[in-house]
């Protein structure tokens, strides 16, 4: 009896390779929201220096303001600003969802999936609107 219950101990922790993470494991929507929350956080952290520099240029003098404006009209800069806008909005929308989950709001599977979809929908819509109003 004891023998039948015993299973060979599985190796733990199990280390996943990058290919398994990227190709084999299909994350559900809340999982995608969560990993993108981390990715957007890293992007925002990396952009802190450049953003502070942009802010400094924009408020220091009319000359610096003009420099910032011409810099911001470069296509590469615009693309970067679009990414930063998305990262900020994704991070804040997913973050508000996490705060609600922390307060035990919507923790059953169906509402958690729904709120993840809402967070994606809101952040993507706001990103498109902001990019259209500011960058185009």
């Amino acid at each position: 009896m004891a023998d039948t219950c015993q299973t060979s101990p599985r190796e733990r922790p199990k280390n996943l390779g990058l290919s398994e993470i990227m190709l084999q494991i299909r994350l559900p929507l809340p999982g995608k929201l969560s990993i993108l929350h981390r990715v957007s956080g890293v992007l925002l952290f990396l952009m802190l220096g450049p953003l502070l520099y942009c802010f400094q240029l924009s408020v220091t003098s009319p000359g610096d303001f003009a420099v910032f404006k011409s810099m911001a009209s470069e296509p590469l800069c615009r693309a970067l600003f679009a990414v930063i806008i998305w990262a900020y909005l994704h991070h804040i929308c997913a973050g508000i969802r996490f705060l609600l989950l922390d307060m035990h709001v919507g923790i059953d599977l169906a509402s958690a999936r729904l709120s993840a979809a809402i967070a994606f929908a809101v952040s993507i819509t706001l990103t498109l609107i902001l990019c259209w109003r500011i960058l185009l």
Binding site: L48, G49, L52, F55, Q56, V59, T60
Partner: peptide, 15 residues
């Protein structure tokens, strides 16, 4: 980096 950024931000704002 973050402490430096905080000082930088204070300098920008209070100028």
């Amino acid at each position: 980096a973050l402490v430096g950024y905080a000082g930088w931000m204070a300098a920008i704002l209070w100028r």
